[in-house]
Simulated assay, not measured.
Amino acid sequence: MGKVNQFTPDDHKIVTSAVSLAEKTTDGEIVTIVTGESDHYGDIAWAISGLVALTALLLVSLFPELYLGIIDWLAGGWSGITALPYWALFVFTALKFFGTRLVLIWKPLLFILIPPPIKKARVRRRAISLFRVSTDHRTVGRTGILLYLSMREHRAEIVADEAIVEKVEPTVWGDAMVALIDLVRGGQPGEGMAEAVRKMGIVLAAQFPKTDQNPNELPDRLIEL
């Protein structure tokens, strides 16, 4: 996905160290992943373009005199057009449609227009997808957990394996999420993820204390996509 990550080599070291320290006290296995964006949102850009084109066509049909006046003005009062021809409506609508889509190639504008619920759903979907690939059922005790951060959407997700889900309510991770978002917003993404990992480690240590029978099964390093 998009490369808008703000993680430096030092940030990677901070997060990796936090994971290693947290896992010294628990059989839980923490995986950390950061990405620039969770989706390209091309379908949303096309949908917005279609909405703009249809809205423009509706305005033309409601106020044809206004557009006829503009054409007459551009022609210096000699257009001689009394009704908009169908081909002109088609060209006008097509220009609005493809023009909007061209403008929305600029991601900052597109992300302003995407409704927050759509961003939330796409980030969650991506987090679950990555969890299935990197964490799900890859530990002996089903104690893997993913901390996922999507920078452009300004959203994070925690997805846990079945043994953790059975013992820990999703709301328990609230403190970790708050710490993460606050520090990322303050320009400290590495510290944010590290602090979230530390808080996750406290919860995991209480429910899944460290035993000698549980090896380090998943990578401690921060994965940057």
Rank of each mutant, 00 (worst) to 15 (best):
D182S: 04
P209Y: 03
V34M: 06
K107N: 02
G174Q: 05
V133T: 13
T139A: 08
W78D: 07
N216F: 00
P189F: 01
E29M: 11
A179E: 01
W73V: 02
Y86D: 09
V197D: 03
R155Q: 12
R221M: 05
V184S: 00
M200E: 09
R152I: 11
R125E: 04
R142E: 08
V4M: 12
A75K: 02
R132I: 11
A156S: 13
L62W: 09
V184Q: 00
K119Q: 11
L95W: 10
T143S: 14
R132A: 07
I145S: 03
A160I: 12
R124E: 13
L225P: 01
E217C: 09
L62P: 15
K120T: 13
I202C: 09
W87H: 06
V103D: 14
W106G: 06
P115W: 08
E162H: 08
D39C: 07
L54M: 14
D220Y: 13
W106C: 11
K119D: 04
V203S: 01
L146S: 06
L149R: 07
A22N: 11
G80N: 05
G76F: 11
D27M: 15
M151C: 04
S17E: 15
E195V: 10
S38W: 04
K167N: 04
N216C: 01
T139C: 05
F111A: 07
T16Y: 13
V165L: 06
G141T: 12
